[in-house]
Nucleic acid binder design. Structure first.
Length: 425
RNA sequence: GGAGAGGUGGCAGAGUGGUUGAAUGCACCGGUCUUGAAAACCGACAAGCCUUCGCGGGCUUCGAGGGUUCGAAUCCCUCCCUCUCCGCCA
């Protein structure tokens, strides 16, 4: 959520900034409702003050045993007016809130202009793309001929966009999770957390998935819970309604979790293989920081995610998302894209964002400055470190051999009984 | 699932209709004292919102929502959560 003060005082500059990301707001409508809100609120609070004063007086009179008939009459007429005003105020505050809650974050000044993926700005590349002296396969062909990836069974069990992994591939998948967690814990100083995979409406609203993107989520109707599309939701909401002392900051959390996405609206997209699934696993990095540090931390967090790819020796590049491609709550985002030989292109494997105070304001996550004793909103950041399914694909494709086996990256071998190759069993 | 108890400020814990946004203790912050620290003493100490250039003034909030009342932390209703015992269970 944007700062309500800003909305009140400088609506036009917000509109201008949002224009950059291709979002528009009806400034006239908002201004009109805001003006009305102000008038009604002032009037309502005046009436409340009057009522409080007289009620207090009645108490004093009664204590002295005096007659209160006059005062009661007076306060009754105030009460009737007040009820009407309070109703009106509630209604208009709600109307205003509904308008404000769907306004996306303002892009940071360093975010490049642009409206689509095409305008994203590559900022660095790492690693050497492998060259093969044989005809390469994609992960689907590799996995199926190894008989360790089974889409048919998954479809039978549930539906399309699910997968069954078996044997060494399943183990490799798990090894990747262990590896990622271990690096982030012991080399990058994150604390591991294990969180609920079902979350309530409030939590989803705080991080920005609701109310606007309900159709992307799986919803448990009976309980009004949602399956998490990312650990960002439960992990970030750890600081909901909290005031954190600055000596405890930054909070750095790493969390492995499954993620569930309905993928509504991506029907024709990535239908082959494990690129886009309804269920996948992810190791998520979350940092809760002081505002002045958040852009340095965005760089740090992105590098933390990149470290995994470096250690796996997978070629990748980092791009800065242009304003038009930014997610709803993000002020700035770096995407990390891994090289997929079968597609001869880079594919997103991590998205690292600074949300500034956008999420923190919604969840009332604040910190106390121990020098001034003042309270202020925190900044929140997160990024995948990394998406496990897509990392698995990248390993399979980049490490494939001529006869269809897969070499196990050195850093993963200790998680797989020191095996060095995945073969058909 | 059954029976009972309870949810109050950073924490602990008073408060059952009227000047209580809330006693008291602890923690935190400022000060006195001290070479320094501790102790002791003194003082300050919730958040959000509205209004104002500022000083200031006002409103709201005692799990959430509704109700009764001139007035609710306190009474009534619904929901959520926590704890204890029993049952069931990975």
């Amino acid at each position: 959520m944007l700062d309500p003060q800003l909305i009140r005082n400088d609506l036009n500059s917000i509109a201008k900034a949002l224009d950059k990301r291709g979002a528009s707001i009806d400034t006239n409508k908002i201004q009109k409702i805001e003006d009305k809100r102000k008038a009604i609120q002032i009037k309502t609070e005046k009436l409340q003050a009057d009522r409080n004063l007289i009620s207090k007086e009645i108490g004093e009179m009664k204590a002295k045993g005096k007659d209160t008939e006059n005062l009661l009459e007076k306060v009754t007429s105030i009460k009737n007016q007040l009820e009407k005003n309070e109703e009106e105020l509630t209604a208009i505050q709600q109307e205003l809130n509904e308008l404000i809650i769907v306004i996306p974050n303002i892009p940071h000044e360093s975010v490049p202009d642009g409206s689509t993926e095409e305008d994203n700005q590559p900022i660095r590349e790492w690693g050497e793309k492998p060259s093969f002296d044989f005809k390469i396969n994609d992960h689907v062909d590799l996995g199926e001929s190894l008989e360790q990836i089974d889409f048919d069974s998954a479809t039978q069990i549930t539906s399309s966009r699910f997968v069954v992994m078996k044997g060494q591939i399943a183990r490799l998948h798990r090894a990747l999770i262990q590896f990622m967690l271990d690096i982030h814990i012991s080399e990058h100083g994150y604390q591991e957390v294990n969180v609920p995979y079902l979350v309530n409406t409030d939590s989803c609203t705080n991080t920005g998935q609701l109310p606007k993107f309900k159709e992307d989520l799986f919803h448990i109707k009976d309980q009004d819970f949602y399956l998490i599309p990312t650990a960002e939701i439960p992990v970030t909401n750890i600081v909901k309604d909290k005031i954190i002392n600055d000596i405890e900051l930054p909070l750095k959390f790493v969390c492995h979790s499954p993620c569930f996405r309905s993928e509504a609206g991506s029907y024709g997209k990535d239908t082959r293989g494990m690129i886009r699934q309804h269920q996948f696993e992810k190791v998520e990095l979350v940092q809760i920081v002081q505002p002045e540090n958040s852009y340095n931390v965005l760089e740090e967090l992105t590098l933390n995610a990149e470290t995994i790819l470096k250690k796996l020796n997978l070629p990748y590049r980092v791009v800065t998302l242009c304003a038009g491609d930014l997610g709803f709550a993000a002020a700035k985002t770096y995407d990390i894209e891994v090289w997929l030989p079968s597609q001869n292109t880079y594919r997103e494997i991590s998205s690292c964002s600074n949300f500034e105070s956008f999420q923190a304001r919604r969840m009332k996550a604040r910190w106390r400055n121990s020098k001034t004793n003042k309270i202020d909103l925190l900044h929140t950041l997160n990024g995948s470190g990394l998406a496990v399914g897509r990392t698995l694909i990248a390993v399979m494709e980049n490490y494939q051999t001529k006869n269809g086996d897969i070499t196990i990256p050195d850093v993963l071998q200790k998680y797989m009984s020191n095996e060095s190759i995945i073969k058909k069993s």
